[in-house]
Every structure is written in structure tokens, then in C-alpha cells.
Simulated assay, not measured.
Amino acid sequence: MENGSHPFYFYLTMYKDQKNFRYIYFTLVLILYLVILSMNTLIILVIFLERALHQPMYILIACLSVNSLYGSTGLLPKMLADLLLDTHAVSRPACFIQTLVILTYGAYEFTILTLMAYDRHVAICEPLKYHSIMTTRTLAIMVAVAFLYPLCAIGSNVSLAFQLPLCGNELRKLYCSNWSVVQLSCIQTTMNNIVGITITVVTVFLPLFFILYSYIKILVICQRSSSEFKRKALHTCLPHIVTFVNYSIAVFCEIIFSRYELPDVVAVILSLEFLIIPPVLNPLVYGFNFPEIHRRILLLLTSTKISMTSK
């Protein structure tokens, strides 16, 4: 261990028993990564290229896809390398960078879903004021805050963990995580725990309560409205609710794994769920449920196929 209490390398111990199946796992992870890249890139391209989709709801969907690419790229390329290598070491700076990426990915998912809930709340509860409230400038400011605040808050928490003297360098994970590093500390981590809990409350639970409040109000409005209005409202809100519920369950599973000892197979599944399921599910939910996006995806793919055939 280099530098005594500040090891220059960490070792990811969850890869130790994967040798006999490493090529199978590598192939599956590679296919998964390519699927995530292709589907989310397609959503982003369609929304970017089609001026008719330059509306707050679709721009926020594109932000979700950008975040999916960001989070999966912070995890899967390193995982692919680790599945092929015999040593599963990661340098201290690289470990904390990956930690920052994965934590901010998780926070961004909640903040973007919060903005989507607010957008639907305004559209359904105050339709006459929608265009005056959800202006391009307002949306740009909200998106900037949704990305910058978690980066600053989580960055401060990760920097606290970076300064801790450690009594080990083995992480029972497939990737670097802040809690796993803090558990190796040789000193009290009260400050880290307080900061971590505060950031979790502000970046997870406050958005969670706001999202629940927004959709409860939407449901109340729908109950008082016509069946046609109710159908349209639920059609636009249902994908957001599905995404929100799926991600909340995935994050809960990750928290459970981080705090308790579980069998290796269960630990692997729970630790990867919130980083893999949402990037795959989100494009499917929005790409197939929204006719505007679905239709333009088909047009883009058809035009691309025709152009390739003509060559």
C-alpha cells in the first residue's frame, strides 16, 4: 500500500470469482453498453434535429438520455476492462472521479425528473400560463441549476472522502463508491456522514416529495376534468411516473446493498440496477410511448436506410 494511509490504488474485489465466465460477462456488458449508446443517442438526435420537438417536455427527455450516456460511460467501459484484466486495480484519482460521476448521475436523474414533474404540473394545472412560465430562458436556468447544484454538493462530499486516511484499499464493489471508501477510514467519519445525509435529503428526498406533490395535484385535476382531458394528461404523465418509480426502486436497492452484507450474486444485481436499468428503460418508455418521438425515429431510420441503399 503506497503512502501508508493514503493508498494510490484501490482493488475491486467483486471481480475475483468471475474468471471462468469473464468472456461471457464481457460480451453481455458490451452488448448492453452498445444498446444504451445507440438508443439514447437516437433519442437525443431525433429531438435535436426536429424543430417541432424543441419544447420543454422533449428537451428534458433529451436531458435524461444525456444523463444515461454520462452514467453508463462512467461505469461500463471500466467494467469491460476489468472483466478482461487479471488485476482489478484503479488509481486513487480515477476511483474518486468515477465516484463523482456515478453519484452525480444519480442526483441528475432525480433533478431532471423533478423538472419534468414541474413541467407537467404547469401544463395540466395552469395550461393558460404554460408558455409564459416555461420560457426558453426559464428552462435553461432550471436545467443549469439541475446540473450544477448536484455537481457542487456531491463534489464537496467526495473531496471529504478523498482526504480521509484509510486502513485498507479493498472495495467490495464492481466500481468505486463513496460509502465503500469511507468505510475504510482509520478515523471518525462524523462530518462525512452529516454532509452525506444532508446532500441525500436535498438532492433525493426533496425532489421526491416535490414529484409526489406534483403528481397528486395532477391526479386531483384529472378527477375533476373530462374523460378526454384525463386520458391526455395520463398519457403524458405515465412515462414520467414509470421512470420515477423504476429509478426510486433502483436507488433504494443500491442503498440497501451499500449498508448491508448480501450474497455476491444479489449484491452485484442490486449495485448495478440503478446504473443499467434506467438508461435502457428510459428510451423505451419515451421512444415508444410518445407518438411524436416514435414517428420521427421511424422516419430517421427509414431515411438513413434509403440513403445507405442508394449508395
Rank of each mutant, 00 (worst) to 15 (best):
M1N: 13
Y9H: 07
F10V: 04
L12E: 03
T13P: 04
T13K: 09
T13Q: 11
K19E: 11
K19L: 03
N20P: 09
N20F: 11
R22P: 00
Y25V: 01
F26N: 00
L30Q: 02
L30K: 01
I31E: 03
Y33A: 00
L34F: 11
V35M: 14
L37I: 15
M39P: 05
N40L: 07
N40P: 08
L42P: 05
L42S: 07
I43E: 02
L45A: 09
V46L: 10
V46K: 01
I47H: 02
F48K: 14
L49S: 12
H54W: 13
M57W: 04
M57L: 13
I59D: 02
L60H: 02
L60G: 00
I61H: 00
A62Y: 01
S65L: 10
S65Q: 11
Y70W: 15
L75I: 09
L80I: 01
D86A: 12
S91P: 06
R92G: 03
P93D: 07
F96H: 04
L100H: 05
Y105K: 01
Y108P: 00
L113Q: 10
A123R: 02
I124D: 01
I124N: 02
P127S: 05
Y130C: 04
S132I: 09
T135H: 06
I141V: 15
V143H: 05
F147P: 01
L148K: 02
P150Q: 03
S156H: 09
V158Q: 03
S159G: 03
L164T: 06
P165H: 13
G168Q: 06
N169Q: 09
E170S: 10
E170V: 06
S180I: 03
V181R: 03
V181G: 01
S185E: 04
C186D: 10
I187F: 08
N192K: 07
V204C: 12
F210Y: 15
I211S: 00
Y215G: 04
K217M: 07
C222R: 07
S225D: 11
F229T: 09
R231F: 14
H235L: 04
L238R: 15
T243K: 01
V245I: 15
N246R: 05
S248R: 07
D264W: 12
V265F: 11
I269L: 14
I269Y: 05
S271R: 05
L272Y: 06
L272E: 04
E273G: 05
F274H: 14
F274A: 11
L275A: 07
I277N: 06
P278V: 06
P278S: 08
V285H: 02
G287N: 04
F288Y: 13
N289P: 01
R295Q: 15
I297W: 02
L298G: 10
S303V: 08
T304A: 15
K305H: 07
T309R: 11
T309K: 13
